[in-house]
Design a binder for these strands. Structure first.
Length: 272
DNA sequence: ACTTCGACCTGTTGGC
DNA sequence: TGCCAACAGGTCGAAG
């Protein structure tokens, strides 16, 4: 589910609601998430004050005063809910963090592809964080970097951009969107993309992500902001989920194909 | 080293 | 109406 803009939306809400608050209880549901919690997770987080939440790729981090960080990945269907009242739990509420002022942060994940972890002080020693490429909205993710990677790749650009070890934060929606805006076919091989096109692509990826963050992310089905409101970027999607509809640039019909098991949407006229 | 594929889960949708 | 297959915003690890 959540790609960078959805995770960033959640991070911002957490920043507003829990920064400098102390964890007084932690409860984990009986259903397994993708991975088990680290040993002693509970005792290492209770009593800790949370500092300003961070985001790395599709991960959200809650830095603790001990130096460790709670690492959150939302998988495909994960949500964060923030409440101030003890409401009835949903069957997919898998972790509940209680704060000293009565705020609750609830981790809910219907499909349980997501997970929680605890990192050391240096987050880059964490097994999940250390294999990520530069963040999609960072300066490190620039045209030269991308071009140097692409020039050896036989693989299609769609799958390259989904690879979190190359660039962190992009998922299926925004890769489709960025390729359409950049007029690049998802079938194009990495090595056949020029440096000039890389400049375009980088600029467009960042523009799309920033606009999506402003809109609170994209709600197709599952995503919601921690206060329960939706993400409004869906109304601005150019190709994702629009097969059979007209291309907004040239009026040709948007096509749908499968690439490594995932759906891609594109315009065969604009995108080459 | 590079790439694809199956597996992990639950819920919804569309075809018959 | 009911059943079943296919599919969904992700990613790990095995296999080719």
């Amino acid at each position: 589910m959540p790609e960078l803009p959805e995770v960033e939306t959640i991070r911002k809400a957490l920043e507003k609601q829990i920064t400098n608050k102390k964890i007084i209880d932690f409860h984990i549901g009986n259903k397994k998430l993708r991975f088990d919690l680290p040993e002693k997770f509970k005792q290492l987080v209770i009593g800790q004050t949370v500092m300003k939440p961070l985001r790395v790729g599709k991960f959200c981090l809650l830095p603790l005063c001990s130096g460790k960080n709670i690492l959150i990945h939302l998988g495909m269907s994960g949500k964060i809910k923030i409440t101030t009242s003890k409401t009835k739990l949903d069957i997919h509420d898998h972790a509940i963090i209680e704060f000293d002022d009565g705020t609750f942060v609830i981790y809910n994940d219907q499909r349980r592809f997501g997970f929680l972890d605890l990192t050391e002080e240096n987050i880059f020693t964490n097994k999940f964080i250390k294999k990520l490429g530069p963040d999609s909205v960072s300066k490190k993710f620039d045209a030269i970097y991308l071009f140097n990677i692409l020039k050896y790749k036989e693989r299609n650009i769609k799958n390259i951009l989904l690879d979190q070890s190359i660039v962190a934060g992009l998922g299926n929606i925004y890769v489709n969107e960025a390729l359409h805006l950049s007029k690049i076919s998802p079938n194009r091989r990495g090595k056949n993309i020029s440096l000039k096109k890389c400049y375009d692509l980088i600029k467009n990826i960042k523009t799309i992500l920033k606009n999506a963050i402003k809109a609170g992310g994209t709600t197709i089905k599952d995503h919601m902001q921690p206060d329960g409101s939706l993400g409004y970027f869906k109304q601005k999607l150019r190709v994702y989920g629009r097969s059979g509809c007209k291309c907004i640039m040239c009026k040709a019909t948007i096509k749908e194909i499968k690439q490594s098991g995932r759906t891609s949407f594109y315009c065969g006229v604009c995108q080459r």
